[in-house]
């Protein structure tokens, strides 16, 4: 593969990701309806936190509203069944194309993830003041989140890609999506900051990957630093996660290519 080919391929995948990102804004009423419950969840979970965890003094109520808003944003655009089905649906056709299905699917998933997150961020910017957060707090958190979004998009894309590859391999993975999502929801501190969990849970949860992709980014957005680790350490941990996911995806993709059976016609 020449340098020109790599450049052309890179340009193609960037444009593909950009197209998928813009697609998230193509039907705003539907997207609004799909995300209509987010403010409700932010409100109810903030109140749950205030009743049971506010006495610990790690956060103020305004900070928790922003924290839960951001974790909800990250979680609701994490591994979604329609994205997985869409990516795996193209597999048979892609065998007749010159480009790698794995990379096309990945760029599409990253684009959709970042687009969806930007859309939800716009929604939350409108909702946060209604819930009682002041503008200075919101603007700082939003700027910090925008810095992290591309990196988090890669991680999210790799997770979703894993499920797409698995769907190509085993045809039916829907039932695994629900518990998988819930594991990340609970262990990632989406409902409330892991910092407020009692020991030994807090210690264990902080070691696991879900905290690196939900709790730590949201904590960073609210406080300006990661919880108990440096920026470099977080970057190192997530880089390792990306490496592991990449290897798993390539391995399963090779298996899927040899075992896939296409139906229809």
């Amino acid at each position: 593969m020449t340098y020109a080919n790599v450049l052309e391929s890179g340009r193609f995948h960037f444009r593909h990701a950009w197209f998928n990102l813009r697609e998230q804004f193509s039907d705003i009423p539907t997207a609004l309806a799909a995300n209509a419950l987010i403010p409700f969840f932010v409100w109810i979970l903030s109140n749950v936190w205030q009743r049971f965890n506010s006495h610990q003094g790690n956060f103020t109520f305004e900070q928790v509203i922003v924290y839960i808003g951001i974790t909800e944003l990250l979680f609701m655009t994490f591994v979604r069944a329609p994205s997985v089905s869409r990516a795996s649906g193209d597999f048979s056709i892609s065998l007749a194309r010159p480009r790698s299905w794995l990379v096309i699917s990945f760029s599409g998933l990253v684009g959709r993830s970042i687009g969806g997150r930007i859309f939800m961020l716009c929604l939350l910017i409108c909702v946060f003041p209604i819930l009682g957060t002041d503008l200075a707090e919101i603007s700082k958190a939003v700027l910090r989140l925008l810095i992290l979004l591309p990196w988090l998009g890669i991680i999210q894309g790799l997770f979703a890609l894993f499920f797409s590859v698995a769907q190509v391999l085993w045809h039916q993975t829907n039932y695994f999506l629900l518990p998988f999502g819930k594991i990340f929801l609970v262990l990632g501190g989406v409902w409330g900051p892991i910092a407020d969990f009692s020991e030994p849970w807090r210690k264990w949860l902080l070691i696991l990957p879900p905290s690196d992709i939900f709790f730590q980014p949201a904590y960073f957005c609210v406080k300006g630093n990661f919880y108990g680790i440096s920026v470099f350490e977080w970057f190192l941990r997530t880089s390792f996660l990306i490496l592991v996911l990449t290897v798993i995806n390539i391995y399963f993709f090779k298996m899927a290519k040899t075992r896939h059976q296409s139906y229809g016609g």
Binding site: F52, F176, L178, P179, K182, L187, W191, F197
Partner: peptide, 26 residues
């Protein structure tokens, strides 16, 4: 089996998560 076990796992995780976050050690 996948449907039922998936839901059981889902419920156990949710139950544990809320308990650990809100009630344990409080």
């Amino acid at each position: 089996i996948a449907g039922v076990l998936g839901m059981v796992v889902n419920n156990i995780i949710v139950l544990w998560g809320l308990w650990a976050m809100l009630f344990d050690g409080k």
